[in-house]
């Protein structure tokens, strides 16, 4: 049962990562990147690393995507 859950999470992360790479709009790519972070949070938690899961949830899918979005807004002001 837990193996099936791990498998589903792996496949979901791969689908979201490919969708994030192939997006035309950069903001959509950043939102999907947050999804990759959330999937890896589930994986870290299942593999008994709650410290790494907390770090990934806060840094990987929280503040780094926000900083990416702000940087994207800076770039749009340039053009």
């Amino acid at each position: 049962m837990i193996g099936f859950l791990i498998l589903c999470t792996f496949i979901g992360i791969i689908i979201i990562a490919f969708a994030s790479v192939t997006q035309k709009k950069l903001s959509n790519a950043i939102i999907l990147f947050m999804g990759v972070g959330l999937g890896s949070v589930i994986l870290f938690f299942i593999f008994k690393a709650p410290d790494v899961a907390l770090t990934e949830a806060v840094i990987g899918s929280g503040i780094s995507s926000l900083i990416f979005l702000i940087a994207l807004k800076h770039l749009k002001g340039k053009r």
């Binding site: 498998l7 496949i11 791969i14 689908i15 790479v21 192939t22 997006q23």
Partner: peptide, 22 residues
């Protein structure tokens, strides 16, 4: 429209790899 064929083939390759590892 959002998922072209290269994405799907890459996904299939990675899924088979993940299945082996798992």
């Amino acid at each position: 429209r959002d998922l072209p064929t290269s994405t799907i083939s890459g996904f299939a390759l990675s899924a088979s790899l993940i299945l082996t590892i798992l």
